[in-house]
Nucleic acid binder design. Structure first.
Lengths: 253, 253
DNA sequence: GATCGTCGGTACGTTAGCGCACCAACAGGC
DNA sequence: GCCTGTTGGTGCGCTAACGTACCGACGATC
């Protein structure tokens, strides 16, 4: 499934019109992103941006006492390094590879330049950023009001949506770090889901057996964010010489 | 204190170069914003944007069961309606006036047009949006890890930073809605602060007696966000011919 | 096969916050 | 004055999640 790598596996890149895509393509560098890799550290000035294809990256805030909390998740639907074009150049959060895979790297200056052409790429990046904002907001809401079990469901579904497989490679310890809860809390919640036949957990391998079942247990936060991503990010190329996909169209103002 | 109203009391407008400011000024409409007013509803397409001057507005998410949680706060440092230039036109959150006062309203089309000139206004709005993102992220972190008392301190300080007074008009019930906790929880936390001599609470009037004291009790979340706002948003006009308002400061921070 | 480190499961006391109920203090209107 | 609605203070039982501790199961390695 990842034998054939292409920048088009990233939805943002895939959504670019041909002219923009051709301009960037020569500069996109395929990189492998191993589990745990820190793409950038809190406060660090960005040199590159990343377009994940088969990997998933978490944005984490790490507190003074070492505790952490996930702020957002970025996979093949998005880009890492929005502070570059937003103008701040750094953020107080850390980006860590949560599910290993591949992605494409682009030099910061090139992205900035493309952004300032104020064309389709700018429009796309801003819409993506708005979707990301919704994800962050909803994370705040979920952290306030929902149980660990519901949050685990949400987290599993968000991850699943960004993978082509139904299996996650992820220890409970790591999930606990992402959610900002105890490892034991994850064990208990995952145990419930397992006994309910929704997932199968075994030493760092989670296999999702019943996705609809997860969706009935998850809180509204998952759906709110998913709906907003679907609304804001086109999942069909915007008129590029279509490879094999369906119709195109799908633009909006 | 609000006898003399001027768009310059809003930091974003104040930071605009003269040319941009002059272009917008004729279209800025002074409005009073009473407590509880809903500037826009979840999913509603925006017709105007607002630049608060003496008012404070909360972005809230309201859940299906009616419970709510504050996502971010916007005062004289910012603007309401970022989804307009981000491209989504709507958001899943609601904007409610949390502290009554004034602000300036601008027709959506005019802001959009100014944004697409890709000049100083665009740069300013994007930087502000990044600051807002930090606020949302940190809200998520705070909701996860910190006690009601710490969150109350953060909330008081965030509000205080956006007012020129040391007194807030705000019932415990409303604060509870913002923080997404029980009213009694706020009562207990506020009671502690009051017994410690930091604030004085009386039927919807909170007077802050010892701001430094609050700052020692607040969690790091407050400081992270404040630092990021200070970094990203200029609080000094960028070389505009200063009008006539007293000193051109008045804006305070 | 024995060893060791990683990963996950379980138990137990503690605590923060919830839901509920109730009441006191106060403000405003009559 | 009196009544009524609003606001804030308190108590109590309950639950979710925490911190801590411990242990078993598995995988890799020697």
């Amino acid at each position: 499934m990842s034998i054939l790598n292409s920048p088009m596996q990233n939805h943002l890149l895939a959504a670019l019109p041909a002219a923009e895509y051709e301009r960037l393509a020569p500069h996109l560098e395929l990189v492998t992103m191993p589990l745990g890799q820190v793409l950038y550290e809190s406060g660090e000035r960005l040199q590159q941006v990343y377009f994940p294809t088969s990997s998933i990256v978490s944005l984490l805030y790490v507190m003074e006492d070492g505790a952490s909390a996930e702020i957002a998740v970025v996979g093949n639907e998005g880009i890492l390094g929005i502070s570059l074009f937003m103008g701040g150049n750094t953020t107080p959060s850390r980006a860590v590879v949560q599910s290993e895979g591949h992605g494409y790297r682009l030099q910061a200056q090139l992205l900035k330049h493309e952004f300032h052409r104020a064309g389709p790429m700018q429009r796309l990046l801003l819409r993506y950023t708005q979707a990301l904002i919704t994800q962050m907001s909803q994370t705040a809401v979920c952290n306030r009001h929902h149980s660990v079990e519901q949050q685990l469901c949400r987290w599993l579904l968000w991850s699943l949506d960004r993978l082509s497989s139904d299996e996650l490679i992820m220890t409970q310890e790591l999930i606990a770090n992402m959610l900002g809860v105890r490892r034991e809390g994850v064990t208990v919640a995952a145990g419930k889901l397992q006994r309910a036949g929704l997932i199968n957990y075994h030493r760092g391998h989670i296999k999702v057996l019943d996705r609809p079942g997860l969706e009935t247990r998850v809180c509204e936060c998952y759906h709110v964010v998913k709906t907003e991503f679907d609304r804001l990010i086109p999942d069909v190329p915007q008129g590029k010489p279509v490879h094999s996909l369906r119709t195109h169209g799908q633009s909006d103002g």
